[in-house]
Design a protein around this nucleic acid. Structure first.
Length: 454
RNA sequence: GGCGAGUUGGCGGAGUGGUUACGCAGCGGAUUGCAAAUCCGUGUACAGGAGUUCGAUUCUCCUACUCGCCUCCA
């Protein structure tokens, strides 16, 4: 069996992965808060953990992996969006959830086995909060319930911070009802205009962190294998999840392995609305960037390194995929080879895997290339339309150019041929002329309108 | 200030205690009416300093720089 190694944030080491139960390898990844389109950065963890999901299924069997990714549909950002737009919350979250699923499918992500929504797990959250209060790890105050960080000695272990350091950092919300400034909210009261559920502490809504703890517990149990997410979630979200779950289920240990992907940048800078380089996955798709190109670019950088989205990477990825698909389509996929699996098993070396695909392509191994592409979640059973050679019927132009060329061969006057060629090139058509004839291929820049001058 | 990640050739990006990936671009050649495409060949790198070692880009320490988090942002 393949030995899987993963970099565990908890220990800051690359460790051999040993599943708790090889017949049911369990993974939880923090999903989106559904209030708007997913931006490109949101796609990174989805794609990274999708590769891990595929790898786990490959190693342990498709029926022996349980992957959970939640939808956070209770959140003050959603409430704010509703108040501002006047639209009902349910409408916003339903719509946004579907957008997310559509966009992630477009970048080749498989759907997880379970996609729980926070709104469906409020009773479990309340039960967990009650349990934490009963065990002395939480307290109710002024309609809130707060987690007492002093009650959990290991608080801060994941992110390497001590409570004292964090208080020294001083940017914590101080509230009169908090015993310790670092205590965080498990439950908070809702006014009449805010969504709320009845609870022992009055009508209110859960805090963000308890949502994930409760859903993970309900679907995966108190002790499971892998918990993933972006490294910006490490603190406070994941730290708080650990505190809640470990205190509610002291003997369990929660997740064995913590995986965090690095952030995404755009042309060397953090993506932000103020810099004007903010865009969504849908924006790219609408611009005609194929989902597989997005996926390819994402996978070309190791998940624990900052990944820079640039125009040149996008173009290079598209060029490479076109070339590979043309070769891979000629044969059915075999099984992915051991070298490729070995690379992925080594802490998800997707960049190394792509290099390996370059080698397979260079060797003309169509079946191997196709299997490798499939393993990485690219190229299904059919040639993707965007990469197909004949996206536009150029046969008339081929005949036209070919005739002109035959004439030119006799007259030795190639000026007419050169003019036609220049126009075709200008329209984004690749012109290949050889002894065998003329072949026209549309490129990424193909623009049919520019052909009309002919 | 605290915590963490990173710094590899023109660009992107792996990896390794000794033999200098890979892709793109470049250069040379084959081919071509000219090109393109293709094929063949080819140059350039491990932030700086100290240490460990027979030997370090790879291990340890220090410095510099970059980035992220410390505010319910993946």
């Amino acid at each position: 069996m393949t030995t899987l190694k993963l970099h565990n944030t908890k220990t800051r080491k690359r460790e051999v992965f040993t599943p708790i139960d090889p017949n049911n390898v369990r993974m939880y990844v923090c999903g989106p808060t559904v209030y708007d389109r997913a931006h490109l950065g949101n796609a990174r963890p989805v794609i990274v953990f999708d590769v891990l999901y595929r790898l786990l299924r490959h190693v342990y069997g498709a029926d022996h992996v349980t992957y959970v990714r939640n939808f956070t549909d209770i959140d003050d950002k959603i409430n704010a969006r509703s108040a501002q737009s006047g639209r009902p919350i349910g409408q916003i979250t339903d719509e946004t959830t579907q957008w997310f699923l559509d966009d992630m499918a477009a970048v080749g992500a498989l759907e997880p086995d379970h996609m729980p929504r926070a709104t469906q797990y409020v009773p479990q959250m309340i039960a967990m909060i009650e349990d934490l209060i009963a065990k002395g790890h939480a307290y109710a105050a002024e309609g809130h319930v707060l987690f007492a960080v002093d009650s959990y000695k290991a608080y801060g272990a994941l992110s390497g911070r001590s409570v004292d350091d964090m208080i020294a950092g001083a940017r914590v919300e101080v509230a009169p009802y908090k015993r310790n400034p670092m205590d965080f909210v498990l439950w908070k009261p809702s006014d009449a205009d805010t969504p709320g559920w009845d609870s022992p502490w009055g009508r209110g809504r859960p805090g963000w962190h308890i949502e994930c703890s409760a859903m993970a517990f309900d679907l995966l149990g108190p002790h499971f294998d892998i918990h993933g997410g972006g490294n910006d979630l490490m603190f406070p979200h994941h730290e708080n999840e650990i505190a809640q779950s470990c205190c509610a289920h002291p003997a369990s240990g929660f997740a064995d392995v913590w995986l965090h992907n690095e952030m995404l940048q755009v042309e060397g800078k953090k993506m932000s609305k103020s810099l004007g380089n903010f865009f969504t996955v849908r924006d790219l798709l609408d611009q005609g960037v194929p989902g597989e190109v997005i996926r390819f670019v994402m996978l070309s950088t190791h998940y624990r390194k900052p990944m820079d989205w640039t125009q040149s990477k996008r173009e290079e990825a598209e060029k490479t995929l076109r070339k590979w698909y043309a070769l891979a389509i000629t044969q059915d996929a075999g099984a992915p080879d051991d070298v490729l699996i070995g690379l992925l098993a080594d802490d998800l070396n997707t960049a190394g895997a792509i290099t390996h695909l370059h080698k397979l392509a260079g060797a003309g191994d169509a079946a191997g290339l196709r299997a490798g592409l499939r393993m990485l979640g690219m190229m299904g059973d059919l040639m993707p339309e965007w990469a197909a050679q004949a996206a536009f019927d150029l046969t008339d132009y081929e005949a036209f150019l070919s005739d002109a060329r035959v004439t030119a061969m006799e007259t030795k006057d190639f000026s007419h041929v050169d003019r036609i060629k220049a126009m075709l090139t200008h329209a984004g058509v690749q012109v290949k002329m050889s002894k065998d004839g003329v072949i026209l291929t549309p490129t990424a820049d193909f623009d049919a309108d520019k052909l009309e001058v002919l």
